[in-house]
Design a binder for these strands. Structure first.
Lengths: 129, 129
DNA sequence: CTTGCCCCTGACGCAGGCGTCAGGGGTTAG
DNA sequence: CTAACCCCTGACGCCTGCGTCAGGGGCAAG
């Protein structure tokens, strides 16, 4: 499978795959004689895992920090939460991510409150403080 | 007053003042013989208004779209909500801003929920969908 | 006169996850 | 053989509100 088909199969674009490879989320794949990247089903599965993790808010750097964890998660069936998941768990980054999400939500909610208050009291013009 | 003192008086930096000027939020100020910007109390007040509006979530472009409104708001005492505030009100941008804030808050809240759900069911590892 | 702080303009950096263009080669159906 | 589409690498663009560096001049005190 060449990059275009692999990307389509994983629901993304060739550019994204090259980007993940460059950032260390994907190992450099095999190449054809003419230098074209060759992907198998395992790589596609791995990309799907990456996309899911990104979709729930983890960053590329989060994933790059524990590349081996992607191996486990992309297995079929995936080995999740064995007795000893080792030091490769995403738990720390997930917790950090939750914290920053909470902080951001609180910040925006606060902003929204202030803005709504001002529009109510000042006719959407000047915040009084 | 030169730019450093004016910036300090308004609670910001010289760089920010030049930036506001470049983006049309501040009119080009008077210059000394040697080309240094000269500010008065009115400019400082205007900068304070700008900062408050930015702090509640409006963007530089929002403010730049209605530069005359800043004149009114920076007056002492400010003329707010006269019988005819003209077409220069921030109400439309404020409403738009509220909408984007709501959308963003909803998005982040949704993310947070999903992430928290996955950490609870999968031990902070793999999102099952 | 010199030291030291302030000002000037112009331009790049940042954070994130790619999109997109440039310039050049592969590959496959007709 | 050639059109048409795909792939390659390298590099800039995006978006916001400035921070920061580079290179060059001003101004008041000792």
């Amino acid at each position: 499978m060449r990059i275009g088909d692999a990307a389509a199969a994983a629901g993304t674009t060739p550019r994204a795959l090259r980007f993940y490879e460059q950032r260390g989320l994907l190992r450099p794949p095999a190449r054809s004689a003419s230098g074209q990247r060759e992907y198998g089903p395992a790589e596609v599965a791995r990309v799907r895992v990456i996309r899911r993790l990104l979709a729930v808010g983890l960053t590329v750097d989060d994933l790059a920090s524990r590349p081996h964890r992607l191996d486990l998660l992309a297995e079929d069936p995936p080995r999740r939460c064995t007795a000893d998941p080792g030091p490769e768990t995403y738990a720390p980054v997930v917790r950090a991510r939750l914290a920053t999400l909470d902080a951001e939500i609180a910040r925006l909610t606060d902003l929204r409150t202030k803005l709504a208050h001002h529009i109510a009291t000042n006719g959407a013009d000047v915040p009084s403080a």
